[in-house]
Nucleic acid binder design. Structure first.
Length: 269
DNA sequence: CTCGCCACCTGGGGGC
DNA sequence: TGCCCCCAGGTGGCGA
């Protein structure tokens, strides 16, 4: 479920709760996540979480001499609970920090919990990541430059984390609607004007999603809690056959690179 | 390099 | 009620 907004909302919920707290225990109920949970992760007790950062869709718990890297995959969520709360199905991993329990639930187990003591820029999963879409780095000219020589459809371009991070399947469709761009358009055919609209649209889309998620945040931090709010308000995602909220044309669904794309054939060219 | 495709997993919904 | 098929928000890795 998580795209960048869900991960960022999770980060904002966790950061004030975890920063400065000492890890008192680690429990791994199911080590078979995307990669096996390592022995180093199991022996994190004694370290102190200094801060919680995010890079793309990765959450990074800064422990001073290294980072715990958490990815929520497609179905992961994190909750803060009182220690001792009984684990339910798919609750694979716990971090106990004094009187706080951080629990990972991930039915599909595409998520990951990794430890690295290396510099983050050199970590294989993080080194090749592209621009943070909410940073000033994602400016029209920069986006335009990124699209040069890239013949794939702009929808796939948006979801390619080596270029821009954090834009998943939902927000790719939503951003392209806001920008008025057909998802099938080749990235290298996007004009500077297109890229100006697109950069703005991406930021607006992600910021709106973060705002919507932030309102439902308390002790529960995770994708499920925000589902209703987000998905009921999409412009095009999941709305095949329904009238466009802007022009009333029927929303279309196509498949690109094996993923559904939704768009308005009238508003998007 | 780029690109298309498969893989990893579980669960929910629809059709029969 | 059961079974089977399809679909799902991510992304690393493969071969062409």
């Amino acid at each position: 479920m998580p795209e960048l907004p869900e991960v960022e909302v999770t980060r904002r919920g966790l950061a004030p709760q975890l920063a400065g707290r000492r890890i008192s225990a680690v429990e791994v109920r199911e080590p078979r996540l995307r990669w096996p949970v390592s022995r180093e992760v199991r022996s994190l007790a004694g370290r102190t979480v200094r801060a919680v950062h995010r890079r793309g869709k990765y959450l990074l718990l800064d422990c001073g001499d290294g980072h715990l890297i958490v990815h929520l995959g497609m179905s992961g969520s994190l909750r803060l609970l009182p220690p001792g709360t009984p684990a339910q199905k798919h609750d694979h991993f716990d971090l106990v920090l004094g009187d706080r329990l951080l629990r990972l639930r991930d039915p599909r187990r595409f998520g990951a919990v990794l430890w690295t003591s290396r510099a983050l820029d050199s970590h294989p999963l993080l080194a090749g990541l592209g621009l943070e879409p909410l940073s000033p780095a994602l400016a029209p000219a920069r986006l335009h430059a990124l699209t040069r020589g890239c013949r794939m459809p702009v929808k796939q371009f948006l979801m390619d984390a080596r270029r821009i991070v954090g834009v998943g399947n939902i927000y790719a469709s939503e951003s392209l609607f806001r920008a008025g761009i057909d998802p099938r358009k080749r990235a290298n055919r996007a004009s500077l004007n297109d890229c100006t609209k697109l950069a703005k649209a991406i930021k607006q889309t992600l910021r709106a999603a973060i705002r919507a998620g932030g309102s439902s945040l308390r002790d529960y931090v995770g994708a499920d809690g925000m589902l209703g709010e987000f998905q009921s308000r999409t412009w095009v995602y999941g709305r095949e056959g329904e009238p466009c909220r802007r022009c009333h044309s029927a929303i279309k669904r196509i498949v690109q690179a094996g993923r559904s794309s939704f768009f308005c054939p009238t508003c998007q060219r």
